[in-house]
């Protein structure tokens, strides 16, 4: 078991190096992409700041500082997901061109090949900047101890688990229906809703963002932990939801592969 984990870690690093090299070969595009990603984050921040800067009441314990924290945690989560799971975006062309066949004949888990082999160094760069900003912001505005940080880290991992679950489901969907892009688009639109505090939404919508498409809760709980306003109940919900959807996505993936093997290309 340990040997398998070590094997896959080493393999991940091998693939990451190739992916990094490819970016360095295409300097011009890489720089433009980097600028684009940074621009997107900055524009989004400007927008949120403008909208909430006049929020003069500390409602429900949430002032401007908490909203900025939300923004930073959300973007770190999303950017790290894009860093790790970049190859999902190339998945559709793999299915259509038949390259998926080549993936399936290799002695490597197809899930690993399709999900984790495209690590994008540009996203990593942006993620590092965001994490630094997050760290500085937490240090300046919130009092945290190592227990809180550890709990935050655990919640963050659970959040990434749900992100993985989503991307796995998208690929499974892509195998059966050949459609990936709009599904990712829909998810991104819904995900955007999680960029502001969950408690600002109407109860019905909060429910949707917690249980149906848990993008809300996966950002809300880590933030609550940092602020010191967290509840055990919420952490349990996060854990259950993440594990549930992760398990579901694995089943879906297995089903999709079986279906693929029943159809001729």
């Amino acid at each position: 078991m340990i040997r398998t984990v070590v094997f896959y870690l080493k393999l991940w690093w091998s693939f990451a190096q190739k992916s990094f090299s490819t970016s360095f070969y295409n300097r011009f595009s890489s720089i433009l992409f980097l600028i684009g990603k940074l621009a997107r984050t900055i524009i989004a921040f400007t927008f949120f700041f403008s909208v909430f800067s006049r929020l003069n009441t500390n409602v429900n314990g949430y002032g401007l500082n908490e909203i900025i924290l939300y923004f930073l945690v959300y973007n770190t989560l999303v950017t790290l997901s894009e860093f790790l799971f970049r190859s999902v975006f190339e998945f559709r062309s793999k299915v259509i061109s038949g390259s998926l066949d080549q993936v399936l004949t290799k002695p490597v888990s197809p899930l690993f090949s399709c999900l984790l082999t495209g690590a994008d160094p540009l996203d990593l760069l942006v993620a590092v900047l965001l994490i630094s900003a997050l760290a500085v912001f937490i240090f300046l505005n919130f009092s945290v101890n190592s227990y809180i940080l550890l709990l935050f880290f655990v919640c963050f991992i659970l959040a990434m688990m749900f992100q993985a679950a989503f991307f796995i489901s998208v690929m499974a969907f892509g195998i059966i229906f050949f459609e990936v892009d709009h599904l990712i688009g829909i998810y991104r639109d819904i995900q955007f809703m999680a960029e502001i505090p969950l408690r600002f939404y109407k109860p019905v919508f909060q429910f949707i963002l917690t249980y149906v498409v848990p993008v809300g809760i996966i950002v809300a709980v880590p933030v609550e932990v940092l602020i010191g306003l967290f509840s055990l109940q919420n952490i349990i919900v996060l854990t259950v939801v993440s594990f549930f959807y992760f398990g579901l996505s694995l089943l879906f993936w297995r089903y999709a592969l079986k279906k693929y093997s029943s159809a001729s290309s």
């Binding site: 909208v51 909430f52 006049r54 929020l55 009441t57 409602v59 639109d189 819904i190 955007f192 809703m193 502001i196 600002f200 939404y201 109407k202 919508f205």
Partner: peptide, 14 residues
């Protein structure tokens, strides 16, 4: 639908 909820949420306290 999403942005309707988004803007409603933003205007909850303003």
């Amino acid at each position: 639908f999403l942005y309707y909820n988004f803007w409603s949420a933003v205007y909850t306290y303003q």
